[in-house]
């Protein structure tokens, strides 16, 4: 039984908590320190600056893109305003042109109308003169014919009519 003591002690250790086996402490502490130092240098020298850089790059890219988008939006708004202005200008110009054309046409029309009116009135005067002339001629022919007929009638009735009284009588009759 006495030879069993070391085995028993070992058994007690393995049956208990390995966490309280102080003989392994220096080993664990040594490797922990080595591990932590390696991790620290890997992280602080390589990993963290790189990841931090990537994160700030991304933040910059995002803010840059947002600014560019804002600028493009402003540009689009300016273009739209310019387009609207051009449209208004064009409309105003079109209106002024059409007004001018209308005035010109009206003027031309008025001139043509006046000319036509003058022509028409001249033609009317001429026609009236012609009508008067025809009427005068007709009156004169009627007088001549009436005088001849009256003279013949008087001669047939056996009278002798002098030309002077005959003319006066016809003139008086034609007036009535």
């Amino acid at each position: 039984m006495a030879t069993d003591t070391s085995g028993a002690a070992k058994a007690a250790e393995s049956a208990g908590m390995p966490q309280l086996d102080f003989s392994t402490f220096p080993n664990q502490m040594f490797w922990l320190v080595v591990t932590l130092v390696i991790i620290y240098f890997v992280l602080s020298r390589i990993a963290l600056p790189r990841i931090g850089g990537a994160l700030s790059d991304r933040a910059n890219a995002i803010t840059g893109d947002l600014a560019a988008a804002e600028a493009l939006k402003q540009k689009a708004q300016d273009a739209e305003a310019a387009y609207e202005k051009a449209l208004v200008d064009a409309r105003a110009e079109a209106q002024s042109i059409s007004a001018k054309m209308k005035a010109e046409i009206q003027e031309q029309l008025d001139a043509e109308l006046a000319k036509a009116d003058a022509e028409i009135s001249a033609k009317a005067v001429e026609a009236q003169a012609k009508v008067a002339e025809i009427r005068d001629n007709a009156t004169a022919s009627v007088k001549t014919v009436a005088k001849d007929v009256a003279k013949e009638l008087v001669a047939v009735m056996g009278g002798k009519a002098d030309a002077k009284s005959l003319t006066a009588a016809i003139n008086a009759r034609m007036k009535g």
């Binding site: 890997v42 992280l43 390589i46 990993a47 963290l48 790189r50 990841i51």
Partner: peptide, 8 residues
């Protein structure tokens, strides 16, 4: 942290 984040 190093290989995975290599691309940036």
């Amino acid at each position: 942290m190093v290989v995975g984040a290599r691309g940036r």
